[in-house]
Design a protein around this nucleic acid. Sequence first.
DNA 1: CTGAAAGCGCTTACAG
DNA 2: CTGAAAGCGCTTACAG
Lengths: 332, 332
Amino acid sequence: MEDVAAAAGVSRSSVSRVFLGQGKVSDATRARVFAIAEQLGYVPNIMASELASRGSSVVGLLLRDAANPAYGLLFTKLQEAAHEAGITLISMTISSDLRGSRQIDSLNRLMGMRVAGLIVATGGVTSAQLEPFRDRIPIIRAGRPEESGRIHAVSYDERISARALAAHVADQGHRSVAVIVTQEHASYPEYIRATGMAAELAARGVRIVPVPAVEFTDGADEAVDLVRRREVTAVMCPSDLRALHLLRRLDAAGLSAPGDVSVSGCDGILPGIDLLGLTSYRIGVERLAERTIANIAALIGDEPPQRIVRELIAGRLLSGATVAPPLEQEPR
Amino acid sequence: MEDVAAAAGVSRSSVSRVFLGQGKVSDATRARVFAIAEQLGYVPNIMASELASRGSSVVGLLLRDAANPAYGLLFTKLQEAAHEAGITLISMTISSDLRGSRQIDSLNRLMGMRVAGLIVATGGVTSAQLEPFRDRIPIIRAGRPEESGRIHAVSYDERISARALAAHVADQGHRSVAVIVTQEHASYPEYIRATGMAAELAARGVRIVPVPAVEFTDGADEAVDLVRRREVTAVMCPSDLRALHLLRRLDAAGLSAPGDVSVSGCDGILPGIDLLGLTSYRIGVERLAERTIANIAALIGDEPPQRIVRELIAGRLLSGATVAPPLEQEPR
DNA sequence: CTGAAAGCGCTTACAG
DNA sequence: CTGAAAGCGCTTACAG
């Protein structure tokens, strides 16, 4: 900056004003400074700038495994929305198979960078861990149910999706259905979905066989057994990835959907899901990203909202070929 | 920091040393400082720290649309490898449908943050645009052929993958094959793949019908026509997403693979690709991420390698059901 | 419209 | 092992 100022024959103050685009600067000076800067390849040091101005325009994003299509799309949409809102997002990913310590690590790193706000799109960080920073900067949970009630959140409406899927399966005439229930501690969203599905099925008088699961591959073989023994005519999975795995195991067992059993997933993001014909629920990623950015922008803005943000985003049912009326048993 | 120092009864220098873990500090002081810091919720300001030490440990990552499974996985794997190498990655995504200006924007922002190095995983930034920063910080292109020869690169070996796929199709007995050729300016990697496929087919005496494409959906309907007119018995696509789209169009036309035509893609990342039975080539994302991080670590390290890094990463053929011998025509 | 000077939160020789 | 002081690259009142 010193060099630019010298070459342009002005003070550092003026160079600063030119780049900030604020304060009064003559057109001549402005043009000269820009020209020299361009020529010298000068790019202002954002760190120094923010340090001096005590302001930060960057928002931190704590993301889960972007290899998961649902998180990858969310990431992309958040970036897009942020860019449009003039917000720079800096992100760190947490692999889903890594435990707590590393997530905290990332959280601290982001805090150390003095981000103006934080978007948490992973369940790996608990509300309790967020709490100490809560009155330091605005924090918003994105895409995941937030229990505490003290942290802002824009979440998918898992209850609606669970109900829509369960209603669809029940409407096809299934009277005995297996539901793969991810344990609460393993994946809270999946847990909510699964219990929501079970509740809706129960309300419709459908018999439910819960299949507990923790790991991604859990429950599939057990479900296959249930199908073999003709105990159920449909299996509901709390995510598309789990449904895919079930389809693989069914295939290995010489069974298929919907011929031998109806299968449903949830997410609806996977490219090619239409070709597979998987019945699912397309979560509203785009809208969620939009609302998350709109809220964080307001929260880090001049007049932050007084109340805790708490929005629910709905999606839409994707009715595919893998769910059909049960064949032999239970004629209607 | 001042507060922590005061509360601990030491100077800021000592607090600094404790957090940097360098220099001699008595165990008593260390313990006291950590305790107070914890209690006060003090997290060192990384920006200030780096400004003062003139060093940066963060590496910038310019990524393409993470919603694309291939980029999403790359992103995740890069993060993992970086974390293991003690490198903090800060990333900005570029939506594939946004043009130049925004990419430069992100590039400047990253430079403004004074990152220690840069990983460019998008073709949207040209070598020429990178050139001005080339002698400022180490820059490495990841996952994409880099033409300039002046920028470090760890790329997928697109020629190998193209050849493997083409050889596989030819080996099945196809003698007339359509190849969807993405134009060079639209997607360079796809262009390299397509021309590589065509070259290998030609070398094996197979007749080639090139179908030019720019947009993601281009070429599919033309390919369907070729199949209808029995001009080709196979269609090779330069990416799985294009292959998926072709399968959709075939389906809409009442045709299917491999019954009416063999279809191949390339990438092999998509979850569920096995269920679809798509013949593809699984690119070596994990290894590429590993090598990229290893190289950037060396480049920003004490003794950077003298020569331009130029590595090629191979993957493996995924032979699926969508490629089979041609049925009626061309009996062997 | 412009410049000199203080200060942002740290690190780092340099003395002790 | 520890502290005082200068400095990192900027911004921002405050004077002019």
